[in-house]
Amino acid sequence: MSDIILKGKVHKYGSNVNTDEIIPARYLNTTDPAILSKYCMEDIDKNFVKNVKEGDIIVAENNFGCGSSREHAPIAIKASGISAVIANSFARIFFRNSINIGLPILESQKAVKAIENGDAVEINLTKGIIKNITKNESYQSQPFPEFMQKIIKSGGLLGYIKS
């Protein structure tokens, strides 16, 4: 099987981006990914929805996705076209929700430090290699434990429990 490659432009944020900012509770009266994606990041970056393109990548510092357990947050991000999120660390519920719904997330302090807003980045998800095309640099992310890789390969948690 060939490696999974993701490629896009970076939208960069700081620490503690929380789920109230990713998808405010005023939009939680729907579960429709297409509707949720229209309001993604609204309270932290009003221009996100306008600027984001299919394949783009979010890069953030510490504790990305802290706060509520709403799975609507990774769903909104995924449906907005974002192909992966790279951060120094993720809040734990956001982390497991992303694994469970199949939104690729990677932890790499080196990548977060070096990558700037607007950089073009290519991720080899299979090998965990993050390539900064703009700066011509590469960074290695922490590989997922085998258990999580099984969930990811099954297309999310429900695929995993059925297999």
Binding site: G67, S68, S69, I93, R96, N97, L157, L158
Partner: peptide
């Protein structure tokens, strides 16, 4: 397990309780 981040509340009783997401609850 609760699909609500404040599920951790029940630790006051001496239980292990933690938040997850909707897919966790479906499973």
């Amino acid at each position: 397990i609760g699909a609500d981040s404040h599920t951790c509340t029940y630790g006051a009783l001496g239980a292990f309780s933690t938040g997850g997401g909707s897919t966790d609850i479906a499973a």
